[in-house]
Design a protein around this nucleic acid. Structure first.
Lengths: 351, 351
DNA sequence: CTGAAAGCGCTTACAG
DNA sequence: CTGAAAGCGCTTACAG
C-alpha cells in the first residue's frame, strides 16, 4: 500500500485514487480548509491516514504557483562571520518561521555582482519579502524588488528607495565615547587622547558614529584633535597599519581607542599580539560591535551591542504596512555588551 | 510599453504578445535553448529586449514545477554563532552557486522538532539535495529525505542512514595533544597534567577526540589519569563549573587544558576573567575549534581548524554519485589554526 | 524556423 | 457534502 520506496513523490492524485475521494476533497483536507467545506471527519481522517502512509509532502512549487504565494522570506547579508550578522540571520529565521514563512538567507560577500544575481535568484523563487542587510548602496536592489512587486527593507545601512531599519549609531557612539572619557579621566588621562579608528568615508554608519563621537566632545566643551578620527577602512589590516603608525609616532598606543567595527578591532588585536603586553594593557578600548571572546582580551574593553531582534522585528513591521511611497527610517537603540542577559550570549547546548 | 510600475509580474505571455512571437519561442529564447531550435537571432534579440523592458524575471516556481527541478540546494545547521558553522554556511553557498543552485541554509538551534519541521519545509520547496550539519542523530532527517527521493548528506556528525563527511577528529586530537605535551615538557611539567574537557558521552566527535587524546598518551607510553577526560557537556557554563571545581581542588588551573569545543573554551574564558591573570597566563591551552579573537587571549592557545571548504566539496561529490545503498564516511583532515593563510582569517572589506 | 497543446501539482469557485 | 474543470507560468515533444 505505502510505496515510499519508489523515487517518485506522491501527489494528491495518488491519495485521491487510494481513498476514492476527489482531488478537490484531498486538497481541502490537506491544506486544512476542509472544515469550512463541511467534509466528513471520517473522510478527512481517511485521507490524512493515506497521506501519511504514502509519505506525502505538499509541493510548494505547485501550491505557490496556484496561489501566487511562495511562503518564502529572503534576506541577503555580507557574511556570517561576526556576531552581528550571525545574530541578524538567527533572528530573521526565528521570526520568519513564527510567521509561517520559510526563511532563506544568503551571504553575498559584499560583491555587488553577487548581490544583484542573488536578489534576482530570490526574486525568481518568488520570495514574498526581502531584507537587505549591510549593503552600502541598496538602491539598485530595492529597484529590482520594486519591479517585481516584492517589498524590500534595508537593514543596518539605509537606502533612499525603501524603508530602512538601522541601529541608532549616533546616540550609541555618544554614549560609548562618554563612558570611555570617564574611564580615561579616572586614570588621570585627558579625554582628548581618545581616537576613533575604522569605517569608511561617506557611509551612513561611519558618519553617524563620527557624529556621536563629536557630540560627546562638544558636550564637554572639548576640541576634537585634527587626527582624532581616522576612517581607515573596514578591514583588519588597514586598522592594524593605522594603529602601528600611531604607535611609531607616540612611542606607545593612544590611551583611548574606539574601534569602528569588529574587524577594525581585529586589527588592533593583531597589532597588540606583536607588542609587549604592558603596552596594551593600559589602553582603554571600545568597539561598536560585540564579540564574546573579544570582551575578555587583556585590555579594558567596552563593546556596544546592536539589538538584532528589535531590528528584525521592526523590519517585519515595515513589511506589514508596506506601501511603496513610504520610505521611512527606523532607529533601534544600541546597548552595552554587558547589558544583555548572560544566556543571550551563550547557548545551552552549543558547540 | 514597459509597465514595470504595475504590481503584476510580467510573464512569457506578456512578452509573446508584445513581440508577436509564440510563448514557445519566448520560452526557448529566455531559457537559452533557442540556438538548438534554430530560432532567428533577430527574433531572439527582439524577445530579449522586450523581456528587459518589461522587467521580466523567470518564475522558478513554474519552471521548477514543469521540469521537476527547483534549482534549490538546502542545508540545515545548528546556528551561525561560531566560525566553524559560519564557514560551513559560506562554503556551501559559494559552491552551491557555482553549481547553478540557489543555496538555502537554515539554522535549527539544535531543536529536534525544529529540525524536522525545517527539513519538511525544505522538502516541500523541493530542494534538490540537503546537507545536514551538526545534527547528533540525523537518521530521522535522512529518512524524510529518502522518502522524498532527495539525496541527503550528513556533515560534521555522521549518521547510519546516509553518506557522511566529517573532520578527522581522531588524528587531529592526537596531533594537538602531542603538541601540547611537547609544550608542557618544554616547561618541565609532566604531560600527565593535561586534561580534556567538554563534549558529551556517546557522540561521535567527542568519542573520536577522546580516542585521539588516548592515542597520544599511549604513543608515549603514558597512563591516562582517571580524571583526565571530563565530557562535561557542550555549553559554556558546564565547562566553567567543571574547571572551577578543578581549580578548587588543585588551588590553581591544570597546567594543560584541551577544550573540546569553542563553547567549552568560552567557559574557560569566563572562569579566567574572574581569576588573577597570573593564574591563567601559565596554562597551555588547546581547542578543537578556531576563533580569531580567542587565539589572542592572554594564555598560550593552540587551535585546531576544520577544513570547511573540503568538507563541503566532499559533500557535493557525494551527491554527484549518490546511490541510496551507499553509506560511506569521508574523513577530512584538520589543521592548526595558524596553518591557514592570513587572508582566509580576515577579509578585505569586512565589518 | 514557429505554433498549438499537454502537463507539472495544486486550489477554488462553481455546479450538483 | 463532493466532483469536474479551469488556471497559476512555464517547457517541450510534436506537427506543421
Amino acid at each position: 500500500m505505502a510505496r515510499m520506496s519508489t523515487g517518485r513523490k506522491s501527489t494528491i492524485y495518488d491519495i485521491a485514487k487510494e481513498t476514492g475521494a476527489s482531488t478537490a476533497t484531498v486538497s481541502m483536507v490537506l491544506n486544512g480548509s476542509w472544515a469550512r467545506y463541511r467534509i466528513k471527519e471520517e473522510t478527512a481522517n481517511r485521507i490524512l491516514e493515506s497521506a501519511r502512509a504514502l509519505g506525502y509532502n505538499v509541493n510548494m512549487k505547485a501550491r505557490g504557483l496556484r496561489l501566487s504565494r511562495s511562503g518564502l522570506a529572503g534576506m541577503v547579508l555580507p557574511h556570517y562571520r561576526n556576531r552581528f550578522f550571525a545574530g541578524l540571520a538567527q533572528s530573521f529565521e526565528d521570526q520568519a518561521r513564527s510567521r509561517g514563512l520559510c526563511p532563506i538567507v544568503v551571504g553575498t560577500q559584499r560583491d555587488p555582482e553577487v548581490e544583484v544575481s542573488v536578489v534576482e535568484t530570490l526574486l525568481s523563487q518568488r520570495v514574498e519579502l526581502l531584507f537587505i542587510a549591510g549593503v552600502r548602496n541598496p538602491t539598485p536592489l530595492n529597484a529590482l524588488c520594486a519591479a517585481a512587486g516584492v517589498p524590500s527593507i534595508n537593514l543596518d545601512l539605509p537606502g533612499e528607495a525603501a524603508p530602512s531599519v538601522v541601529s541608532d549609531n549616533r546616540h550609541g557612539a555618544r554614549a560609548i565615547t562618554n563612558l570611555m572619557m570617564d574611564k580615561l579621566e579616572a586614570r588621570g588621562i585627558p579625554p582628548s587622547e581618545l581616537v576613533l579608528l575604522g569605517g569608511v568615508a561617506n557611509e551612513y554608519a561611519t558618519d553617524m558614529r563620527v557624529a556621536g563621537f563629536r557630540d560627546a566632545f562638544e558636550a564637554r566643551g572639548l576640541e576634537l584633535a585634527e587626527d582624532a578620527v581616522d576612517r581607515c577602512g573596514y578591514n583588519a589590516g588597514a586598522a592594524r597599519d593605522a594603529l602601528a603608525a600611531r604607535y611609531q609616532k607616540l612611542g606607545r598606543l593612544p590611551a583611548g581607542l574606539l574601534m569602528n567595527s569588529i574587524t577594525a578591532f581585529e586589527g588592533l588585536v593583531q597589532l597588540t599580539s606583536t607588542l609587549p603586553t604592558s603596552d596594551s594593557k593600559s589602553a582603554v578600548v571600545g568597539c561598536f560591535d560585540w564579540d564574546p571572546f573579544a570582551v575578555h582580551l587583556a585590555f579594558d574593553v567596552t563593546m556596544l551591542r546592536q539589538d538584532v531582534q528589535k531590528i528584525i522585528a521592526e523590519a517585519f513591521t515595515s513589511t506589514d504596512n508596506y506601501d511603496a511611497p513610504d520610505r521611512h527610517l527606523v532607529m533601534v537603540p544600541t546597548r552595552f555588551g554587558d547589558m544583555f542577559d548572560e544566556n543571550e550570549q551563550t547557548t545551552e547546548f552549543d558547540r
